[in-house]
């Protein structure tokens, strides 16, 4: 049991670092740097780096949630957390679920249009790029309380 929990927690943390690391790369590095990149070099980001980063980003989000729920279930506090009987970790889990929903159902669909991965009206691209950016920023904002909640399990705050 201890070894199983250790392995699930390790996979949860590895997936989480993949997810939040790329989220912060987008928000702290790529988005602020785009205006400084010459137009002829922008396809390197839009056509090569961003699609690859988005692959690891969305699957990182999926497996973070998957292993996180598995960890809570096998540790015996899944329902207590979801019902906020264990309030702090419960709020963090809900924040993580909201963020993962944003990744899969808002950011990824919008980025597919903005980056030209799927066929769409060219006029839609700026709108979708802005939508993806705002939801990515929302996730950056939520990542701070979410991470604070996650570490509270082993390091109680109050």
């Amino acid at each position: 049991m201890e070894a199983e929990l250790y392995l699930i927690r390790l996979l949860h943390v590895i997936s989480g670092i993949m997810w939040i690391g790329i989220l912060w790369y987008f928000n702290f590095v790529q988005i602020p740097s785009m205006p400084k990149i010459p137009d002829e070099q922008k396809p390197a980001i839009g056509k090569v780096i961003a699609p690859e980063a988005l692959f690891w980003f969305r699957w990182g989000a999926f497996f973070t949630v998957f292993f996180g729920l598995a960890l809570a279930w096998r540790s015996g506090y899944l329902m207590d957390a979801m019902m906020l009987n264990e309030a702090l970790i419960g709020i963090g889990m809900w924040l993580g679920l909201i963020m993962a929903f944003n990744v899969w159902f808002v950011i990824w669909p919008a980025q597919k249009i903005a980056l030209g991965i799927v066929e769409a009206d060219a006029a839609l691209k700026p709108t979708m790029a802005r939508r993806a950016m705002l939801f990515s920023r929302t996730n950056t904002m939520l990542s701070i309380p979410m991470l604070a909640s996650m570490i509270s399990v082993q390091n109680p705050v109050m």
Binding site: L88, I91, A148
Partner: peptide
């Protein structure tokens, strides 16, 4: 905003 939310969350959860 994220830091403010964190503080609100900690006291709210308590």
């Amino acid at each position: 905003a994220g830091v403010i939310l964190t503080v609100v969350m900690i006291f709210g959860a308590d």
